[in-house]
Design a binder for these strands. Structure first.
Length: 562
RNA sequence: GCCCGCGUAGCUCAAUCGGAUAGAGCGUUUGUCUUCGAAACAAAAGGUUGGCGGUUCAAGCCCGUCCGCGGGCACCA
């Protein structure tokens, strides 16, 4: 990657200057290379001389000049300049830039890959919403962030597995079952009261009717607890099927749907509980079992198993944290992932230190765990809050948003802002804006290129490799340079776990293409030079490929026509 | 009360671990189509980066302190 090349050139320049006695000896710090604010200043720049001023005790500009003078020649670099107060600026060599088109085309659909992960296995666990109702907009943000992150990490050289953790072990399943039972009995014509703490959403009644139509009245003939349990199971299966289909509409597919309940059925929970006990991190208080988190520096201890007085049913006594203990062991030890990434709503941030504490307590390397938090999405309609509680009803599902806005625009909107910024999602505005959503600007560039290639075929033009060295127009070079940036965007997004950089890159790339398209005729009759036509066709094919890859990294489609 | 996130153009958001004149999209204004897709291009207007103080060559970013918004501090999930 060109950015790394330049970093190494700066390093060589410093070393050479030191060897020549032009700079004193010092340990070279980490070298940052970024882009100057204006293109005429160059393509890449380093502010390292400013940082070295304290160490070297010389004016930064003088340091910059000394380093610049000692940087070895390189085919990729056309010009090295220094600028006040102490920058070293690099301009890429046009001849080198234009030939990079060939490399981009050769890399094909995998252009943009970087090898950070070296094939290590990473799991991204995301969404994992309770299976008690359709996916809401917060779940959609989770899906967009998690899946894009998975795609980016895949491009960054990790072997990725996507996982949905199904919370099928808690008391919410029983509540959901009771709600299902009530709606089912009501649908069968019985006057049955709806539970106080039930799930009031209309979807429960829809599921109940579905069951009644399919299985008849048979659940009314069995003891109510039995019927509630079975209807709960049936209901969650229906919910999961619906959630799965919603996620598929969003281009999200999982490798594993992992059952929380299986952590108990397999005996794993008992095993890790004993491990915590062996390390004297458990104690009983008022018939509940506590994890001594304060021994690991946390502010409070936390309950793992609640007391029988409060929770009669033994299966419902373990808390979320209890499952998390077994789950983190399952991920890191039983399934041996090198890295695991959790994507959580920020409402769970209080649980973060506890997960790290239990991992530490189990003797696991916490550096393998990362928990990415995203702030809430507030759904509004015309500026007014829309409630999103599954139990409260009055619920706008992701399916409805998808119906109105479409998956491409939805995904793009949900990853445009950084995860730790809360966002308002106004339905009215989203529908209104969906037609001039930025995502269409990017897709339009792609469709336009497809149109050019169709046009070339219609003119019976045989596409050859082309001599890309002919691409020397400023707009051509700007487009190629923009394409080359994809590699560093992938690297950056993967390193920082910040998928939102992709949307901004995609817009810049589409803009660079549009500028080129406006300035540079490609096909006859506007273009009369056959060699230049072939070179530009090569450029256009490369641009199409990079646009498609960028969109694909976001889970957005690349249309041939719009 | 304590903890976490946020506050940037009218709106939605960026800003590559502290770098150069804070950038895009939408909206507004003005130009550009009898031929490769005008869902486009070119340009303009729009900012005391919530306030005040501090750290240093340099602060939207770090520190302190206020103000405002959201979230968390359960034997809830």
């Amino acid at each position: 990657m060109i950015r790394h090349t330049i970093i190494e050139l700066v390093r060589s320049g410093i070393s050479a200057a030191q060897a020549a006695g032009a700079l004193p000896a010092f340990e070279i710090p980490q070298i940052e290379v970024s882009h100057p604010p204006k293109p005429d200043m160059g393509d890449y720049s380093s502010s390292l001389p400013l940082k070295l001023a304290n160490v070297v005790k010389r004016p930064p500009l003088q340091i910059a000049q000394t380093i610049a003078k000692h940087i070895p020649a390189n085919d990729a670099i056309g010009k090295i300049e220094t600028a006040a107060p102490g920058f070293v600026n690099f301009t890429l060599a046009p001849a080198w830039v234009s030939l990079e088109v060939t490399r981009i085309l050769a890399a094909g659909a995998r252009f943009g890959d970087v090898n950070l992960g070296e094939g290590k296995r990473a799991q991204v666990e995301f969404v994992s919403a309770n299976p008690t109702g359709p996916l809401h907009i917060g779940g959609a943000r989770n899906a967009a962030i998690g899946d894009t992150l998975a795609r980016v990490l895949d491009a960054a050289g990790y072997k990725i597995e996507r996982e949905y953790y199904i919370n099928d072990a808690g008391s919410q399943i029983r509540h959901f079952g009771a709600s299902m039972y009530a709606r089912y009995a009501q649908a069968a014509g019985l006057d049955v009261p709806f539970p106080e703490d039930g799930y009031k959403g209309a979807y429960v009644a829809e599921y109940a009717q579905e069951v009644l139509a399919r299985d008849g009245r048979k659940y009314l003939d069995m003891p109510q607890p039995e019927a509630t349990r079975r209807l709960g199971r049936i209901g969650t299966d229906l919910v999961i099927a619906q959630v799965r289909s919603t996620l598929e509409r969003m281009q999200v597919c999982y490798d594993t749907w992992f059952s929380e309940k299986s952590l108990y059925d397999s005996g794993l929970f008992d095993k890790v509980l004993k491990m915590l006990g062996d390390r004297s991190l458990l104690y009983e208080s008022e018939q509940a079992t506590w994890f001594a988190a304060t021994k690991l520096g946390l502010e409070k201890d936390a309950v793992l198993i609640r007391s029988p007085q409060i929770i009669p049913n033994p299966e419902e006594r373990p808390t979320y944290l209890a499952s998390d203990v077994a789950y983190v062991w399952n991920k890191l030890v039983e399934r041996k992932f090198d890295r695991v990434i959790y994507v959580w709503g920020a409402g769970h941030h209080g649980d973060v230190p506890r997960v790290f504490a239990v991992a530490q307590a189990l003797g696991l390397d916490t550096a393998r765990i990362q928990i990415l938090l995203y702030q809430n999405v507030q759904l509004t309609r015309g500026g007014e809050r829309v409630t999103m509680s599954k139990r409260g009803g009055n619920f706008v599902s992701t399916d409805e948003v998808l119906d109105e806005v479409g998956p491409d625009a939805l995904r793009f909107m949900l990853i445009t802002s950084s995860a730790n910024a809360a966002m308002d999602f106004d339905l009215q505005l989203a529908v209104q804006q969906s037609n001039d959503n930025p995502v269409y600007y990017v897709q339009y560039a792609h469709a336009r290129i497809a149109g050019i290639l169709r046009n070339a075929a219609a003119q019976s033009i045989t596409v050859t490799d082309g001599n890309t060295a002919l691409l020397q127009h400023p707009s051509e070079l700007a487009l190629i340079k923009q394409m080359l940036k994809l590699e560093q965007v992938v690297e950056f997004a993967a390193t920082k776990l910040e998928p939102h950089h992709l949307t901004h890159y995609a817009l810049e790339l589409a803009r660079a293409f549009s500028g080129f398209y406006d300035d540079c005729p490609i096909l006859p009759p506007k273009q009369t030079d056959a060699d230049l036509m072939q070179a530009r066709l090569a450029l256009v094919r490369a641009a199409k490929q990079v646009l498609a890859r960028t969109l694909d990294l976001m889970g957005v489609t690349s249309p041939e026509t719009m």
